[in-house]
């Protein structure tokens, strides 16, 4: 599997993502800088977490307007798989590649802890290595993870199976509507999620529940 990791000033989870992709796919991802207008030919594009542009204006708002995002949008439209984690999810929403918005946590506090996730749709390119309804462990670390969508949008994404991960067993850390932790676009090739699966992929992390997400992608791209 060939992958690319987008890098922007203020992102800080790119190294974790690069390590995870390298360990799981056996191939180091190509790093792409925000001002690049061309992307290499890859099977997977990842927008990692962090605090791009210091979260100025709105989380992900400025990053979403950088030149590289036009290239990401073009690839996404062609069906290339795209994952945005945490700030990467916020960037995908601000870029209009996913529906809804992420707002300040209902508690107003930054949350950094482990949550439980339910795999709400195991029939996607990102979740096929999980069992339907499976409960997994995953860390979260964010201040603005409170997913919101207007009632029509919410009904549509729920009806179309676009909700892929939900916070399970009362672990919703941010007030997200319908406990939504991760969604895909209508075509199913763009995933955004607040939790960090790249931080739970080997025994040294204390668990490997995040690994199947990358293995799902690997299975398709092999």
């Amino acid at each position: 599997m060939k992958s690319a990791v987008i890098q922007l000033p203020g992102l800080n989870r790119d190294r974790d993502m690069i390590a995870a992709l390298t360990k799981i796919s056996g191939k180091a991802p190509i790093k792409v800088w925000q001002t690049d207008t061309e992307l290499p030919e890859v099977d997977l594009i990842v927008l990692p977490g962090g605090f791009s542009y210091g979260d100025y204006l709105r989380c992900g708002a400025i990053a979403a307007r950088m030149p590289v995002m036009r290239a990401v949008a073009e690839r996404a439209a062609k069906g290339v798989l795209v994952i945005g984690v945490c700030n990467g999810f916020q960037i995908l929403l601000e870029a209009g590649l996913l529906p809804g918005a992420l707002m300040r946590n209902a508690s107003l506090k930054f949350v950094c802890r482990e949550v439980k996730l339910q795999v709400a749709n195991a029939n996607t390119a990102f979740t096929r290595a999980y069992a339907p309804g499976q409960i997994i462990r995953c860390p979260v670390a964010h201040h603005d993870g409170n997913f919101f969508a207007d009632p029509e949008t919410l009904a549509r994404i729920e009806g179309d199976g676009q909700v892929v991960f939900r916070y399970a067993e009362g672990t919703n850390p941010n007030g997200s509507i319908n406990d939504i932790a991760g969604i895909v676009n209508q075509a199913g090739n763009v995933l955004g999620l607040m939790p960090h699966p790249e931080n739970l992929i080997e025994a040294a992390h204390g668990g490997i529940d995040g690994r199947a997400l990358f293995e799902s992608v690997l299975g398709r791209a092999a």
Binding site: I62, A101, F148
Partner: peptide, 9 residues
């Protein structure tokens, strides 16, 4: 429309 506001919210 393009930057200052997120018209979703």
């Amino acid at each position: 429309e393009r930057l200052l506001a997120n018209t979703v919210i």
